[in-house]
C-alpha cells in the first residue's frame, strides 16, 4: 500500500492505494494522523484500495473520533460498493460521514 496526499480548497485528501490490512495499517494510521495534525478538514478516498480489513477500519474510526473531538471534519469519499458494504455491516455508515465524491463532500466542510 502507498498513500497519496493532496490538498484541494483547504481540504486534505488522503488516498490509500492497494490493501489496507494489518501489515499496512500502521502506515495508513501514520499518514492519517499526520494529516489530522496539520488540518481539521480531512477526506479519505477509497477508490484505489483492494479491500480494507478490520485493522484499517480501526484507523478510520479513530480518525473520526479524533476529528469530532477537536471540532474537525472527516468525510469518506469515492467508496466502491463492495467497500461500502463492509462499512455498512460494521455500522460505520451511521457514525461516519460518507459521500459519493469529493464535490459532494464539500457541503460537510462548509
Amino acid at each position: 500500500m502507498e498513500i497519496k496526499t493532496s490538498t484541494e480548497e483547504g481540504i486534505t485528501i488522503i488516498t490509500p492505494v492497494g490493501r489496507v490490512d494489518t501489515s499496512t495499517a500502521k502506515a495508513f494510521e501514520d499518514g492519517v494522523m499526520e494529516a489530522i495534525n496539520s488540518n481539521s478538514k480531512i477526506a479519505i478516498r477509497f477508490s484505489d484500495i483492494d479491500y480494507i480489513s478490520s485493522a484499517g477500519l480501526r484507523v478510520v474510526l479513530m480518525a473520526g473520533k479524533k476529528l469530532t473531538a477537536s471540532k474537525g471534519t472527516l468525510v469518506l469519499i469515492d467508496m466502491p460498493e463492495k467497500i461500502f458494504a463492509v462499512f455498512k455491516m460494521s455500522g460505520f455508515d451511521k457514525i461516519l460521514k460518507i459521500s459519493s465524491s469529493f464535490e459532494e463532500s464539500k457541503s460537510f466542510f462548509s
Binding site: S53, A55, R58, T68
Partner: peptide, 16 residues
C-alpha cells in the same frame, strides 16, 4: 448501533 464516541472496534474482524 453505538455512537461514534462510544464505538469500539473489538471483535470487528470475526464479525465481518
Amino acid at each position: 448501533s453505538s455512537s461514534l464516541k462510544e464505538r469500539k472496534v473489538g471483535g470487528l474482524g470475526i464479525f465481518i
